[in-house]
Structure formats: C-alpha cells, structure tokens
Design a protein around this nucleic acid. Structure first.
Lengths: 138, 138
DNA sequence: TTTACATATGTGTTATTTGGCATATTAAAA
DNA sequence: TTTTAATATGCCAAATAACACATATGTAAA
C-alpha cells in the first residue's frame, strides 16, 4: 500500500518524515543522482548499512510514494518515482540541492559497485569478497 | 541555540523532521504565505491550537533554522528566516507548493485575525471575546 | 508593587520510531 | 527437491517525539 489514497496533508507529512532520516535521505539522493534503478545489495554496499535496515528504510520511502520497486527474479530494484505534482517535484529538487561533496565516499563506492554489473544487471550480492577487494584497491 | 553549528546532514534531517508535523507545516505555510511576522496569539487563533503546543512547535521550527523570533514587549513575533542556501530555498519553495485550497479556513481566519491589528500591531491576545465574535460573524 | 497577560518550559504519560536479531519468503541453483 | 542467495518482516528494547497540564518567566498595566 502506498499513500495515494490518503489526504494531501498526511501525504506531505509522510514525505517529510520519510526524508528526516539520514540513511533514507542518502538513499533518495543516490536514486535521484544516478537516475537508474539500483538493487538492495548495491545499496547495502554503497551505504555500508546492514540488510534489514536498508530494506526497512526502502519500504518507508516506498510507502511515502517517493520510490517504486521492481522485482527481477530474486533481486529487488528501486527507482525514484517520477513526478506526480508540484510538491513531489519540489521535494526531489530539494534533495538534489544536497552537494555532491557530502556524498563523495558513497558516490565513489556507487560508481565502483555499479561497474561490477554484467550487461547492466546486478549479479553479485551484498558484502561479497569481490566487492571488498574492488572497494579497497586503488 | 539554533542549528548552524552542526554538520550539514544533521541540519537537513532536522529541517525535514521539523516539517513532518501537520501543525508545524501549517505554521510554515502561513509564515511563508503572509510574508509578515505574526504573533503567537494570532497563530493560536488562526490554527485553533492551544498555546503550549504552538509555542513548542515554534521552538522546533526555530531550532531547525526555518524561522526567527522577535520579541516586542510581552509579545513574540515569528517570521520565516530568509534564505541561507539552495537547500533552504528549495525547502521553502516546497512548502509553498501546498495549494491554498487546503489552507482556506486558516487563510480566512488569518485575514480576519490580522484585521484586528491596530497600526499593524497585534494588540489582542489569544481566544478573546472580540475574536470569537469576529470569527463567527459573516 | 500588585495584578494581569503573553509566552515559555518542566514533568509525566503515551505513542512513534529506530536498530538489532531472528526468521520468513521467494526464486534461482545445484 | 534440497540448498543457497536475496530480500522482507515480526518482535523486542531503547530512543525519541507528542500531548496535556501545571507552572515559571517576563512585561505591561493598574
């Protein structure tokens, strides 16, 4: 269930609340910045957060209507939800004003992590040996 | 104390959290929409919230750096804080995308309440007889 | 200098949120 | 069809937030 049946005020406060947590704000920044779907495993490695917290935070963002989920086999991919109204649009723009410098580590890890994809698809789970090696090298 | 000494991430989440409550969001919309300072008593009458909650919510918005306070005698006036950076600006714009229709009652009461000012100054406390009379007439 | 008024704040209570852990679910692989 | 991998979720405890009430603070008027 998402929030599109509820009254506008509740929707606004749910959206602001969804973005009032550091992990969720970083996830949202990531999704908006890379402009591509990303798997839970990739988010785990990029943000260096554990699996259950990432999953839970993703659900909150999804319930707020900010992102959507696409299942592909045993993988779940998330993507920001395209703009519904001027409020959503302004919210997304707000998140994107957060300067890249503050996300340098995450952006670097994200670029490395996405380079492990094969044919544009995520094929390696979270916290794998390959990832730790790639992450530390260079 | 406000939030200008803390790290940017904490500032962002504090601001989103400040706006994740209905009363605070309405206060913020009001302040941005009327573009003028407004007293606590006036906010109480416009939002029909009690005094201690209004005061506490105002303090949270103030600590988030979204508004500032100006004391004039026994009255406290609040005003939105002028833009600091692109994030703050985007946040304010987001709040202003909330359509006026959703604030019709409050906007009407606000207009009536501000009309009770004398020489542009608030001179009548919260929940006065004059106010209840003016509010119900017409 | 009392008194009244506008506003702020401390306290207790209840509700909500968060993180950690264990476990469930689902789909691919063996 | 058993096992493994990816993800979701239920439960508990700790932290945090919200509300109601009482009261404190500070200012102005009487």
């Amino acid at each position: 269930m998402d929030n599109y049946e509820i009254n506008p005020w509740e929707r606004y406060t749910i959206i602001f609340k969804a973005l009032s947590d550091l992990t969720r704000l970083k996830i949202m920044w990531l999704l908006l910045s890379i402009d591509s779907k990303i798997s839970v495993s990739e988010i785990i490695d990029v943000l260096e957060e554990n699996q259950y917290n990432v999953s839970k935070h993703l659900r909150i963002l999804k319930n707020a209507g900010l992102i959507y989920e696409k299942k592909e086999g045993k993988w779940s991919f998330y993507h920001y939800r395209s703009i519904n109204d001027s409020f959503d649009k302004a919210v997304m723009e707000t998140v994107l004003t957060i300067p890249r410098e503050l996300m340098l580590d995450e952006a670097t890890r994200c670029q490395k992590r996405l380079s492990m994809r094969v044919d544009g698809k995520c094929v390696i789970g979270a916290e794998s040996g390959e990832w730790h090696e790639l992450k530390c090298n260079e």
